[in-house]
Design a protein around this nucleic acid. Sequence first.
DNA 1: ATGTCC
Length: 403
Amino acid sequence: MTYQVLQSEKGKAIKMWTDGVPVELDAQKQLMDTAKMPFIFKHMAVMPDVHLGKGSTIGSVIPTKGAIIPAAVGVDIGCGMMAACTTLTASDLPDHLYQIRSAIETAVPHGRTPGGRDKGAWSDPGSEVDAMWAALLPGFKAITQKYPHLEKTNHYKHLGTLGTGNHFIELCLDEQNRVWIMLHSGSRGVGNAIGNHFIELAQADMRQHIANLPNRDLAYFEEGSQHYNDYVEAVGWAQDYARRNRMVMMQNVIAALKQVIKKPFDATVEAVNCHHNYVQKETHFGQEVLVTRKGAVSAQKGQLGIIPGSMGAKSFIVRGLGNEEAFCSCSHGAGRVMSRTQAKKKFTVEDQIAATKHVECRKDADVIDEIPMAYKDIDAVMHAQRDLVEIVHTLRQVVCVKG
DNA sequence: ATGTCC
């Protein structure tokens, strides 16, 4: 058995795959609060990248029956990773990778480019965006009939855009020197608006009893209520938007590479496309339950997933082992060991340059919060979840575009 | 994380 059990008072058990990695006390406290909710199904599962999060603990799997907690998914609905393997190898890449990074930065609107055209929205979306939006539109119309204020969001102009923070696009090499494209993003402005709205609705609906909850982020909708049904519909749509957002970006990154690299190549456009911030109905222990994964990835037996390391460290393509005790899940990354503010205080631009020596990426003061030392040791994290996933490919980054 | 406001 490679998990430890944290037993909360009057709560369900918390099974933690954290062998050899630290678990902060404030994260343990947050997990124990969640485990007290009466509708938690069987137990909670905790991944080795666990840390304190806003709304719920990052790296946790929260199975519920009869209720749903919108703040557990949070506002970055459908956030996740996509990876595609190309027929290129390292020797097909130019000696200087700056032009590749620059081509990607031009092809995909993103948040942090100095002097960038806007705050990461399209000024003129192309035909791929139109086609992808057409698939999302019927679902969006059904939602905005009930929640018309969501029409005011940047839904269409954000489709195929990266965002900010730790959202990124990378080129990586695997153990055979094959070139992979990896990207990390979510449902952008519209998913954020949906998340925030339903978090507020849940708190308003429960205002008579909210003081009885361990904290107000545990406000929930009960199955059968109108808001429960509306949230399940809206969060599912935002997750679909996030998945398609990543697909549009992948198409445009491939097109950008084809402009810079003269050798013809193919890419498996949907190799892996996985959420790590989401909720969906699943069957576990013979029962239909809602599974909320906050900073956790589905790892059903044989299912492929993506576990990125920090910039300059390794990333992994993994295959699920279908560990039912973990509700068939694995970690979503290395996990932070310090906040963005702490990282900016502790490290310098020189530290950042040294830590990302082998990666073509920005190395200025504005990206120090993503320095590898702000994250846990990815090898320790992988070891702690050895009975959840097996490693299929080990990738190292050579180009990174930060959002 | 995002959008908006300070």
